[in-house]
Design a protein around this nucleic acid. Structure first.
Lengths: 342, 342
DNA sequence: GTGAAAGCGCTAACAG
DNA sequence: CTGTTAGCGCTTTCAC
């Protein structure tokens, strides 16, 4: 019952045709008599024939496989990116080989090697190390994705417009009457940190900005917020976290100390993950176009595979989701109390 | 610069060996002189040679590719499953072809066809339709995953132990002094609904249980909870939702009406997604072993591929995560107030 | 219109 | 130990 899959040869002999005629009939390339076409189709159906893509690849050099290497498929942000890529890939009749690098360059290198061995037509990578760029030099069509994407000039890349998104958050805080916010940012080692901080400084100048470093996790954000709260402070504390998970951690830190958000401190996140909708108050955040990022990356990769000239880096804008974790210091006090319970 | 990838032939001629000797040297199969091995390795390195897995597959019949077809990679639960599968696949040196079916049987069928064409060694599927079972009859090693997995006897399957998990939740509610809870469950069309309801009835008997149907989304849970709240009620309402997203929606419904959780109503979820940790109060829930499910599925698939006899369905136990959305009606009132603020 | 034959890159006999 | 040879399943000239 577990017998060999039928091959074109089987289809051809059942249909009483030669391999080549059967091939032409099924693929629709080349002239075939109507009834030959019909018999080939019938035979294929009867046998449950499915062409062997590996064999096709060997002749055509096109595997119809593309790779996706992201830090962590279980991270809500990256899962959204993957979904966007997935959907777009299906449209283009491409299959997606997915890998998680866990931010480790050795895992990344290993996955990249697997992609080359599988002879994928191209790959989308959120680069940890520069091994990705090396691959491109070797001829694999590549699209970089995420905030670290800009680090390799000349390679097609797609990411959130960090400058615009950070500006959006900062301006919102400003309109709400907040001064310079404190920052909770990622580890020094990540390109994303540099980008975020640079964007803030671009807007606010290089004046001293209170900054805590965490590791993009809830626990990290919680601890960082604790440190921020330990310091003496004379006015309302506003915090802009470099991702939602850390912002949510900060909210837990507030809760731990019996402090109220946004009355005692305001929190602004960055990412737009679903979890932010359920906290109390809901997390106000600058959302990134995660799904669109994935979809766009696939579209660009298809271009690159087809040899069209690579566009320069594409930056997709973020948008603000206002939910209640930022106090409105600009509103008259009376109004503020009334608005607090909505 | 975008030149042809080097082949074994290139390596062999650079090393001054025949193709077969080079092959033996690089793969380590068969006797090769030490210096021949060395020269082959050097040539491979110099050329950046990576074996063509497609060609290898054609000879060996092993693609080292496996498929994963799940409803939605962006759903936190399934993203965790995918991550578990991913990690385990890497360990087994297998690459994962990922697809989302979006609970649509036509998409599922399409993905399955893509998997056959790619000649994957096997596939893990959360079946929407019975096309998956048909594939197995045709000789593709298959492992079913998730609550709908049990629907195809004879196929290896791995899923959460629904009976045990539901019992865990029900017993917890009981210990906390709650009577029969109301249920928010999924649509009739999903096997998961039947399973969940059956498990509840198995524990509670077939007495009338208040049940609302939603679609596993936050909005659906929110609306369902609204309907539950619209009905006259003489005692504390406890709700057991069939997934966390709906439970979180129910919590929003409570908030919308200015009701307190858990003082006015208790909520128990099912899944254990990360978002439940950030709500206020945190969502008490029965967690499913999502990552382990994915890992185990890959392990079982490897067994199946290697022709080992398929184990019967594997059910992994869930566990309770207690966070605060369930009132303790069994505790003395004084204690209850004191405990309420933790 | 159709068939025969070559070859994509690799491995597994089989001789040397 | 090493080289030669024959395919894996398919497409694609090239004759007929």
């Amino acid at each position: 019952m577990n017998r060999r899959r039928p091959t074109l040869h089987d289809v051809a002999s059942l249909a009483g045709l030669s391999k080549s005629t059967a091939a032409r009939a099924l693929s629709g390339n080349g002239p075939v008599a109507a009834k030959a076409r019909q018999r080939a189709a019938a035979a294929a159906l009867e046998l449950g024939y499915e062409p062997n893509q590996q064999a096709i690849s060997m002749r055509s050099g096109q595997s119809r496989l593309i790779g996706l290497v992201i830090p962590d498929i279980a991270n809500p942000f990256w899962a959204e990116v993957a979904k966007g890529a997935q959907d777009r890939a299906v449209e283009a009749d491409l299959s997606l080989l997915c890998f998680s690098s866990d931010w480790q360059s050795d895992r990344e290198a290993r996955h990249l090697r697997a992609l080359v061995r599988a002879r994928v037509d191209g790959a989308i990578v959120n680069p940890v190390a520069d091994s990705a760029a090396a691959l491109h030099a070797f001829g694999l069509p590549l699209v970089l994705i995420g905030s670290s994407a800009g680090g390799f000039p000349g390679l097609p890349a797609v990411g959130t417009d960090i400058a615009q998104s950070v500006r959006l958050g900062l301006d919102f805080l400003n309109r709400r009457g907040h001064g310079t916010p404190a920052l909770i940012v990622g580890p020094f080692s990540r390109i994303a940190r540099t980008r975020f901080v640079a964007a803030v400084q671009e807007r606010l100048g290089t004046e001293a900005i209170e900054t805590e470093t965490a590791d993009y996790t809830v626990e990290g954000g919680q601890a960082a917020m604790g440190r921020l709260l330990d310091r003496p402070r004379r006015s309302h504390l506003a915090v802009f976290a470099a991702n939602d998970l850390m912002a949510l951690g900060a909210m837990l830190a507030l809760r731990d100390r019996g402090l109220d958000c946004p009355d005692d401190a305001s929190l602004l996140g960055f990412d737009g993950i679903g979890a932010g909708a359920f906290s109390s108050p809901g997390l106000t955040t600058v959302a990134k176009p995660a799904r669109a990022l994935g979809a766009r990356a696939v579209a660009m990769l298809v271009e690159a595979i087809e040899g069209r000239p690579a566009e320069g880096p594409v930056h997709l804008p973020g948008w603000l989701i206002e939910r209640g974790s930022v106090a409105d210091l600009a509103a008259p006090a009376a109004l503020r109390v009334a608005g607090g319970s909505r």
